[in-house]
Nucleic acid binder design. Structure first.
Lengths: 117, 117
DNA sequence: CTGTATCCCCTTTGATACTG
DNA sequence: CAGTATCAAAGGGGATACAG
């Protein structure tokens, strides 16, 4: 027990990444951070390539992790709104610094393309 | 062209995550951020569960992205040292904020376990 | 020591149809 | 509208053997 598996040496890193990374989570979070509330169908329109199945599963995971809130209106036809929780909003600093790093990275890549000519 | 696919609406986020996320990259970066230089075999010992194949491929990707430097000593037996590049070190703020968020998240999870009893 | 090359499995993702 | 169920496809990752 005193000698942890290395995977656990940076559990915190993994824990954070498990929540925000993946094929769809970043863009879902992006939209929910920008929009306060979004219905299921609005998210689908915002992310046309995603399937219902994937959208549902990713939203469920985020909800389960306490990042987003799912509000169901008991009516027909159904209406469900998703929004960031207060806890979810605590991810903002990370998201912001990643976006700014990523932006610089994309510019750097672009520049390297050009320079290699 | 004026109407981007939504996946591209947050390209920066994806770009950053592509580099730091994955099954092995976080822990590889973790070790290289803490150790200045590490040989291939030292990384293997630090991450016992990883296979050579995976370690090699992940290091290659990080190198290709300019995050780490690979220094080969032309000798027999071979010796290769990996280290963060200056550019790679620019990831530090992100890594640090992710670790601290992750740490709080783990505590929160733990607390919720307890509270549910 | 520092890798490559194969082969195989298994999870993740996607396509599609169906439902309350 | 907001999902679920099912099945098929794809790709990542592991085990192992080989190589410079």
């Amino acid at each position: 027990m005193e000698n942890q598996a290395s995977g656990e040496t940076c559990q915190e890193l993994q824990a954070a990444l498990d929540i925000i990374s993946g094929k769809w989570k970043p863009i879902i979070l992006f939209h929910l951070l920008e929009n306060e509330k979004l219905r299921f169908s609005e998210l689908q329109r915002a992310i046309p390539e995603i399937t219902k199945k994937m959208l549902t599963s990713q939203l469920r995971e985020l909800e389960h992790n306490g990042i987003i809130h799912r509000k169901v209106y008991q009516q027909v036809p159904p209406k469900v709104e998703y929004s960031m929780t207060e806890y979810g909003n605590s991810l903002s600093p990370i998201m912001i610094s990643m976006r700014s790093w990523g932006m610089q990275h994309l510019q750097r890549m672009e520049k390297m393309e050009v320079d290699s000519n």
